[in-house]
């Protein structure tokens, strides 16, 4: 359906914006390495089913490889910055201070409690879906500490947030058309979108009106 396609396109767009930002500007100011590492973990645990060869579709499989590949590549590009632009790297590390153990621990616990089956694959899937819902927190924390961000960084966060928000009408659509109700995805999707809501509001008020992102 249209919402799901738009959501996936928005997710793709967010990654392209991020890669272009890092490659062109050769700096990583305002981008959280911790959030990017969490995404590597999210995609690697979510798409373990690639190893079972029970593929849904070519589209699905290609997208999975793309998300794993690009998330690893982003982390590598950011690590490279240690040598190519040490000032920018140091500045990023100085601001990227969110303690991710407070996300990893609870997500692992939630995965043990809420899952569809008590198998390695399903537990990893559930862990990834919980972790994805909060993976943006180090990035948002960094943003709130510095109080402002480059326009490209805010476009990246917006596209990334929009992707999960668009999955919500997709789930409503699928409930009516296929009688499909995936409670875990829906709950974590709502949680994820809620975490972005404050950002969305400021993005709408400032960036979309061409005023640049600055926190009140």
């Amino acid at each position: 359906n249209i919402f799901r396609i738009l959501a996936d396109l928005s997710h793709l767009a967010s990654i392209v914006i991020l890669l272009e930002t890092i490659r062109k500007a050769r700096q990583i100011d305002g981008i959280s390495l911790k959030t990017q590492i969490l995404y590597v973990l999210v995609f690697c645990t979510r798409y373990l089913d690639l190893l079972t060869f029970r593929w849904t579709s070519l589209y699905n499989t290609l997208m999975k490889f793309f998300f794993i590949g690009t998330s690893v590549y982003v982390v590598k590009l950011m690590q490279d910055c240690k040598l190519t632009n040490p000032v920018s790297y140091k500045d990023m590390m100085f601001r990227d201070t969110f303690q991710i153990k407070y996300l990893l621990g609870p997500c692992a616990l939630l995965a043990l409690v809420f899952n569809y089956k008590f198998t390695v694959l399903e537990l990893c899937w559930s862990f990834s879906i919980w972790l994805e819902s909060v993976a943006i927190l180090p990035q948002l924390f960094m943003l709130s500490r510095s109080g402002k961000a480059s326009t490209l960084t805010t476009h990246y966060i917006f596209a990334l947030g929009l992707y999960r928000a668009l999955y919500i009408p997709n789930w409503i659509w699928r409930y009516y058309s296929e009688n499909r109700l995936e409670k875990l995805s829906i709950f974590t999707g709502l949680l994820q979108t809620a975490l972005y809501s404050d950002f969305f509001y400021i993005y709408y008020r400032k960036v979309m009106k061409g005023r640049g992102f600055e926190l009140p």
Binding site: D8, T56, N60, Y116, E178, L181, E182
Partner: peptide, 10 residues
């Protein structure tokens, strides 16, 4: 629900 555990979304 029959759809449980069939992860066809990204």
């Amino acid at each position: 629900n029959e759809n449980k555990g069939t992860h066809d979304e990204l």
